[in-house]
Design a protein around this nucleic acid. Structure first.
Lengths: 342, 342
DNA sequence: CGTAATCGGGAAAGCGCTTACCGACGTACG
DNA sequence: CGTACGTCGGTAAGCGCTTTCCCGATTACG
């Protein structure tokens, strides 16, 4: 691997000069030298060692984002938004997949700190686990105290900036729509109960139920993995324990799609016999059949906003900013009034 | 930010000793010192500077993967496979999104080289652009000559290891199925013509046509972006210019889904009036309606294999290995015999 | 013509770490 | 009791770069 010294030697200049030319330093340099150096760079196919540069310059430039799983469309969309603004700022983004293991979240914070990341963005639900939350919080605080920026998406427990989607309000929207249509026997296909996203959305649903004079009993709620197969198994359970449900509220689109698949396999018509509503409005929601009624969250935009917050110049008064993002009901074909005239 | 020197000072030892303890060097160290150092690490929340380490150790450890777009399920799946094996090997993977801009591909190779990546994995179609290909090839070769490993997925033009899916054979499978069912008026919804993936799959389709005594005329093929909206617009064009088509072969699932959406919006029944076949078998293919008949490629597995190749010990005889992966037809509901008894 | 200001370039000191290499001590042995 | 060796720590030399500081040579000016 060619080094700066090699280039300098070849061009017959000092490493200092070569460095200045290559990095376009403000210091003026004669054109003759400039050309010689540039030629040497070309001939040697020289690329500066990024680690050495980072060490010498001593200012962070990359930013890290910790997600559960990029291959999940939810995170893929957020990531896409993040990347866009990072690229605009000329920042490299390091994507870290925890595959839903909280411990990895901790590890990655450490790793990102070790790599001198300028900012860490945490996307994805927080956990209902006080000890874990405290540990994470502590690590994050240490990171901040050394000048690191932190932004979180969809979790409220941490210091640093936050972009928080209206999960509760969205849940309420779902409930209002379903009860409004006349459904009374509603099943909830929920994500893992230790995720705050699950409980937040659930809370909104409960509020809507109360407002309509109903109540969501624990047995109406089935918890499972926040993905397609979780949605399918939870739906199966629901059908078995509550044969009379006329509507299913899935707490994210992946689960809703799993629900749809299971319903279809059992020959149950949607929305004829059972209505299904999702949450998130991922791109595929409109392509399943029936097209999914869901709650739209501007995923890519949320990512972009989080990155923008994280890249902000050192906070004026150390005040973490919080941006709320609204949820919106998107009515499509998977929901309708209950068929049972009762 | 606490440094190793800080830790050493605090523990009352030399930096050398501290380093040895922290990294578990083979050199024996008294337990008393070990404890003091570890305590200091804890108190100072010390995390070694990864850049300094990499510089001092001077051996690469991260690996980079260049994809078109992680939020595209095709790449998301591949990436998932990649990550799995990278993690098993304790490697950090840097994901680079080109957003389909070939120039970015070049830039990222450079960036990865600058970051001392141990390996670069190129996923996603190659381009029919000799100049670009040569430039990329040259850059890759330089990288290899300095000890870097290279693996590509789905492109054949480069040195280094390769995992190559049976695009041609898959295209043939599509053609055989469609012509076999009795379709004669087939429209092709193709990706950009400058992508080798497009032309490879097309070639297979053409071969099948010939075998069945047909021929694919240029006008039967509409080129568009390799995504959902590209699929929709291409299908619209096809419908307008070839009102009589009874089957549409989309060259990837995203496009097929776009085609499905457009067909639905025009009230055309699938497969009743028109059959649709996709390619790739991404996870969502089974959830759209009608469920998509498609060509299955073991995406995650391909990623895993590429990573495995890339992480292999320095090649024995410098021989790039090539792994072919088979394609398989998955019959679902979107295809059937043509309705026109003619 | 002497001095000061200016300009272009190099020498060298780090950035935070790893790792030979060396040296001091203690033990085992002759 | 002297030599030899094994243990455990420390010293210091880098890794490849950036950047401060300084110095010689021009140029400008009085």
């Amino acid at each position: 691997m060619a080094t700066l010294a090699d280039v300098a030697r070849r061009a017959g200049v000092s490493p200092a000069t070569a460095s200045r030319i290559i990095n376009g330093s403000p210091k003026p340099v004669t054109d003759a030298l400039r050309e010689r150096v540039l030629a040497a760079v070309e001939e040697l196919q020289y690329v500066p060692n990024a680690h050495a540069q980072q060490l010498a310059r001593n200012h962070r430039s990359a930013v890290g984002v910790i997600v559960h799983d990029v291959s999940d469309p939810y995170f893929a969309e957020i990531t896409r938004g993040l990347q866009r603004v990072a690229t605009e700022h000329g920042r490299l983004v390091i994507i870290c997949n925890t595959y839903r293991d909280p411990d990895k979240e901790l590890e990655y914070v450490e790793l990102l700190r070790a790599n001198q990341a300028a900012a860490i963005i945490l996307a994805g639900s927080g956990y209902h686990d006080e000890q874990f939350t405290n540990t994470l919080d502590a690590k994050l605080r240490v990171y901040q105290s050394t000048g690191g920026h932190v932004a979180v998406i969809g979790r409220h427990e941490h210091s640093g900036h936050a972009v928080i989607p209206a999960n509760e309000a969205g849940g309420h929207l779902v409930g209002a729509e379903l009860y409004g249509l006349g459904h009374t026997r509603i099943g909830v296909v929920a994500g893992p109960r230790h995720l705050t996203t699950t409980t937040d959305r659930l809370a909104g649903l409960r509020r809507a139920a109360r407002e309509h004079g109903h109540k969501l009993t624990p047995r109406q709620i089935v918890y499972a993995d926040f993905d397609r197969s979780g949605g399918a198994t939870a739906t199966a359970t629901l059908l078995d324990t509550h044969p009379g449900v006329t509507a299913i509220a899935a707490l994210n689109d992946s689960m809703a799609i799993g629900a749809l698949a299971l319903l279809r396999s059992r020959g149950i018509d949607v929305p004829g016999q059972i209505s299904v509503v999702g949450f998130d409005d991922m791109p595929i929601a409109q392509d399943v059949t029936p097209a999914l009624t869901t709650i739209r969250l501007p995923l890519a935009d949320m990512g972009a906003r989080a990155m923008t917050l994280a890249l902000q110049p050192p906070e004026p008064l150390n005040t973490p900013q919080i941006e709320h993002v609204a949820a919106e009901l998107v009515r499509r074909e998977s929901s309708g009034p209950p068929s049972d005239a009762r």
